[in-house]
Design a protein around this nucleic acid. Structure first.
Lengths: 148, 148
DNA sequence: CTTGTCCCTATAGCTGCTACAGGGTGCAAT
DNA sequence: ATTGCACCCTGTAGCAGCTATAGGGACAAG
């Protein structure tokens, strides 16, 4: 009726180190240990881990997930925060899609410029070098964080 | 007729540490120094940095940019590699757009489920918890690397 | 002569893991 | 009994691509 760390990891498609990492960050509780000091988990821990992985796959950050979990732990609290977190991520995803679509256009254009077969005559590098030719202002997005 | 590190950084919208970082990685050359040991750059360095930043803004990785730069440095070489790098990034961007569009649907669905005003009755958290309800298989994308 | 702005090196931090070193544990087969 | 193998433990370092900080030097304007 209990799980080893390898078991819940496998069940949820995580890996063992990741589960320990979540524990260190306080996303997963410290589980009880068997007499040999090995972690043992119950069904709730499995659910919690599945929640985390699912939220991660939807692009939520670990701090956001921590907040969602603490809301879930206290069902009497208002959930405006959860709404806000979802909305924030949705907005971020939409921005990201938009930026990527612009990049797609830009790369297509660069690809279309290719004419020569040595890099001296190759338009790709030249086009990449020439910033003036840009159709879009994709420059503020360089340092944007990973979001799927 | 020469630039300080702060100057080329400003001109290209980079910051000073980033330029030094590129130098350490071999993307930027080691420039000459004035008598006080400060870096001095010429117009070619400025162009090179602009190229790097532009390519970064288009989502190219630093190793890819290094390759593109070495092609640009040797104009007699065939440019198939440059084509391949562009194509690779274009494919990556298209994948990414597709994945993000699926996530957008998923989050919209979650948002639409919101009914209650305490987190106990809030569908958002529940929907997030319930993986069975997923419309898409967005699970292999969790650990995908940042690409704008 | 102080204040401010730039520059220098070296190092640590960010996110979200992943991998490795160096060891212990548990169970089945020989 | 012992050998082998898969699993578990802690702690630390690495990935990308920066960014920030500490602790100092250089130089010009007021």
């Amino acid at each position: 009726m209990d799980y080893s760390i390898g078991k819940i990891a496998k069940e949820t498609g995580s890996n063992v180190q990741t589960v320990r990492y979540y524990e260190k960050l306080g996303l997963m509780p410290e589980p009880w240990r068997n007499q040999a000091g090995q972690r043992r988990y119950g069904p709730n821990d499995l659910k919690r881990l599945a929640f985390i992985r699912h939220a991660r796959s939807l692009g939520f950050s670990l701090p956001q997930i921590k907040e969602l979990l603490s809301l879930a732990d206290q069902p009497e609290k208002p959930c405006a925060t959860a709404d806000a977190i979802v909305a924030e991520n949705l907005a971020k995803i939409r921005d990201r899609i938009h930026a990527l679509q612009q990049l797609e256009q830009e790369l297509k254009r660069i690809q279309a410029c290719d004419m020569g077969n040595t890099s001296g005559s190759c338009r790709v590098i030249e086009t990449l070098a020439n910033h003036q030719l840009c159709l879009h202002d994709h420059h503020q997005n360089i340092e944007s964080k990973s979001f799927v």
